[in-house]
Amino acid sequence: MQDRSLPPLARLAAGLTLGTLGGVAFHALSLPLPWMLGPLFLTMVAAVAGFPVAGPARMRPAIVAVIGVLLGSRFSPEVLGQAGEAAVTLAILLAYLLAVGAVVVPFYRFAGRQDWTTAYFAGMPGGLSEMIEFGEARGANVAAIVLAHSLRIVVTIALMAFLFRVVLGHDVGAAASSASGPPLGIIDAAILMASAVLGAALGTWARFPAPSFLGPLLLSALAHMTGLTAGAPPTVLIIAAQVALGTILGCRFLGIRPVMLWKAGLLSLGSTLLTLALALVAGLAMRAWAGVGLDQALLALAPGGLTEMGLIALAIHADVAFVALHHVARILVVIVLAPILARVLPPQD
């Protein structure tokens, strides 16, 4: 039973300790994305079991800003020459999103026995906070939406890591190992720090989705594409950010009963497999019509979080800029279209 008498700081220490142990264990076992999946797995088990754990949720903006700067460091001047390719792949992305909505929403409605509104906002591949806000405004079951999107990210990360490591043979180890670059000088460090701080402020001011992530990514990308710096955040900082992020994701399941999690997990597994099947079809179209590698296309289309898919792209040396662009486009398209298309839903049961 969860001991709610523990002070918040003690629960945070317990969560981060378990998260670190999970990362060390996964790293020792050479499992994929050890510093994120290890903490996520161990803290999720502890949270569902009722142990008093907590993640550094208030630090999430700073954590994702570090990862945003890291992914931005993988942008190069050649990215500007990919506009023609992007026009084709973004059109394929739009068709893919419409197909996902047409398949996954009915899956949640009939297989999950949810009302149409809840099924719609649970099945749309958008951001968690936006889907909760839209769904709550229309009277949906908020708890079901939270579980659907939280588990979608977890299941997608696990399946994609397994696919690239076991099936395709990529070395999906610690993404931080891919962050090595030239020695980080004082000027480089100052530029990266400014990208994180000013980028987060810019993202908030411009009302970006995931502002603390996209703002730093944008400024870091501009700094690297213009040759202002070639540096990247140090490895130890990236590992710490992944451990903290995995711990936050795992502790999100605190208070969820095992039976509820089991049922929601089966639904999420089914919906994610359906979505990945559609992503495979769209990825093959990208390969045929735009010459994009299938592994890169799958990462750009997979229904996981932008941050997490970016880390996998970094680990397998895929084009991070391509992956990030398509996830940003996915989030924006769903945010814009979801409320509009929701107007044609059948009335609540």
Rank of each mutant, 00 (worst) to 15 (best):
Q2A: 09
Q2H: 14
R4L: 06
R4C: 01
P8M: 13
L9V: 06
R11D: 07
A14W: 11
L18I: 05
G19N: 11
A28E: 01
L29W: 03
L33A: 15
M36E: 14
L37G: 13
L37N: 07
L42R: 01
M44L: 14
M44K: 05
V45K: 00
V45Q: 05
A46P: 13
A46G: 12
A47I: 02
F51R: 15
P52A: 12
A57M: 13
R58E: 14
M59D: 02
P61F: 09
V66L: 04
G68S: 08
V69L: 12
R74I: 00
R74P: 09
R74T: 01
F75D: 05
Q82P: 00
E85Y: 03
L90W: 00
I92Y: 11
L93A: 04
L98E: 06
G101W: 06
V103Q: 09
V104N: 08
V104F: 01
Q114P: 08
D115Y: 14
D115H: 13
Y120R: 07
M124V: 03
M124Q: 08
P125F: 04
E130T: 02
M131G: 11
E133W: 13
G135V: 12
E136D: 10
G139R: 13
G139N: 10
G139H: 07
A144Q: 11
I145N: 02
I145C: 00
A148L: 10
H149E: 05
L151M: 02
I153E: 01
A158T: 10
V166W: 13
V172G: 03
V172T: 03
G173R: 15
A175G: 15
L184D: 12
L184M: 06
G185W: 13
A189S: 09
A190Y: 02
A194H: 10
A196R: 04
L198S: 09
L198F: 15
G199V: 06
A200K: 01
A200V: 00
A201G: 07
L202I: 10
L202C: 12
W205Y: 10
P209S: 03
A210K: 08
P216W: 00
L218R: 04
L219Q: 09
A221D: 02
M225H: 09
G227R: 02
A230T: 14
G231R: 00
P234F: 04
I238P: 10
I238C: 09
I239V: 15
A240M: 11
A240E: 14
V243R: 04
V243H: 07
A244G: 11
G246K: 03
C251A: 08
C251F: 07
C251L: 03
G255R: 09
M260H: 01
S268W: 06
A290C: 05
G291E: 05
G291N: 06
L294P: 08
Q296W: 00
A300S: 15
G305K: 14
M309A: 00
M309E: 01
G310A: 01
L311P: 10
A315F: 12
H317I: 00
D319G: 02
D319F: 00
V323G: 04
I331T: 03
L332T: 04
V333T: 15
V333I: 15
I335P: 05
V336L: 10
L337K: 12
I340A: 11
L341W: 07
L341H: 04
P346R: 04
P346S: 02
P346K: 07
P347F: 06
Q348Y: 07
Q348W: 02
